[in-house]
Design a protein around this nucleic acid. Structure first.
Lengths: 141, 141
DNA sequence: GATTACTGTAATAGTAAAGGACACAGTTTA
DNA sequence: TAAACTGTGTCCTTTACTATTACAGTAATC
C-alpha cells in the first residue's frame, strides 16, 4: 500500500475540483490510473475519517465532504497510515545480551519515530486547496 | 534496498565503537544480522564517500575513517541513496492533455521532493557519535 | 418489485522488488 | 603459494504490492 497515499491525494484533488456532484469509483480510477476496486478501498478509509461522503446505488459515488483548505496531506497520511517512511529496524529475535544490538534498536526506533513525526508535520502544512490552487495557476482547467 | 540505510547506520555505530582495529564483513554481518556480502556492498558506498577505510587481504576489513561526530545520518542517507521515502507519483505514460493529471504530477513531485529534503535535514542533526553516546548511557558496554 | 448502477469488501492471482546466498576475481600478508 | 580478506555480479527465493475478479448490500428508477 505504498502508493495508496498518492492515490488518495490525487483522488481528493480530483473530487475537490468537482464540488457539486458525485464521482464514481470508475471515474476516479480513470483519472488516477488505477482500478475502481482499489479506489473504493482507499476512499473507504477517507470516508471513515469524514473527508468524503459516499453514496451507494444509482447516481452514487464519492463527494468531498470538507472544505478543501481544511484537509491537509498530513490528515490523509494518517488516515491511510501507509508508512511511506520505510525505516524500520530489523525485527530480529536473536538479540544477544551485552551486544551493541541490544539497545541500538530502542535508540533507532526513537529516531525513526521522530523522523516520521517531522515528516507528517511537514505534510500538515499542505492542504488539498493549496494543491488545487497550484494546478489551477498552471491553467489546467 | 530499503533497509540498507539501517544496516549502514548500525554498521557505522559498531565500527565507531571499535576505533582502533579493523572489523571484517563477517564480524559486522554478525552484529547487524545480515550477510557478509550485503555488508560489503553497503560498506562499499560508505568507502566511496570516505566514511570508512577498507583493506583487503589478511587482517583486512573495515574501520571508521572520520570522527564519529562529523558523520550524520543525513550523510549516510545520501551515500546509500536508499529512497526510504517511498513517495513517487505514478510514472504513467498515458497522461492525456487537459486533464487534472497533466500537471498534478509536477506539483506532487515538487511536494515530495521538498518532503524528502526536510527529512534529510532532520537526519543531518543526528551524528553517529550521538547515537553511540545514547547507547553508552544505557550501559551497553 | 425487478432492474440497473452503484459501493463495500474479501479472495485470488500475477508481478515487481528486496534480500539472501553463492561464486569468483582481485588484493594483501605471511 | 596459501590463507584471509574485499569487491562485485548474478541467481534464486521470498515477500510485498497491485490488479483483477467476484459477489453481497444498497439506492434509485421504471
Amino acid at each position: 500500500m505504498t502508493s495508496a497515499f498518492t492515490i488518495a491525494v490525487h483522488s481528493l484533488v480530483f473530487l475537490a475540483s468537482l464540488p457539486d456532484r458525485m464521482a464514481s469509483s470508475e471515474e476516479i480510477a480513470n483519472q488516477v490510473f488505477t482500478h475502481p476496486a482499489r479506489v473504493r478501498k482507499i476512499m473507504s478509509c477517507l470516508r471513515k475519517e469524514g473527508y468524503v461522503k459516499t453514496k451507494e446505488g444509482i447516481g452514487g459515488g464519492y463527494i468531498f465532504e470538507c472544505e478543501p483548505d481544511a484537509v491537509t496531506l498530513g490528515n490523509i497520511y494518517r488516515s491511510i497510515s501507509c508508512k511511506a517512511l520505510k525505516l524500520h529496524w530489523c525485527s530480529n529475535e536473536a538479540y544477544e545480551a551485552c551486544q551493541l544490538s541490544t539497545h541500538i534498536q530502542d535508540v533507532m526506533d526513537h529516531i525513526f519515530n521522530d523522523a516520521e513525526n517531522h515528516f507528517i508535520a511537514y505534510l500538515d502544512h499542505i492542504t488539498i486547496e493549496s494543491i488545487l490552487h497550484k494546478i489551477k495557476v498552471k491553467q489546467v482547467f
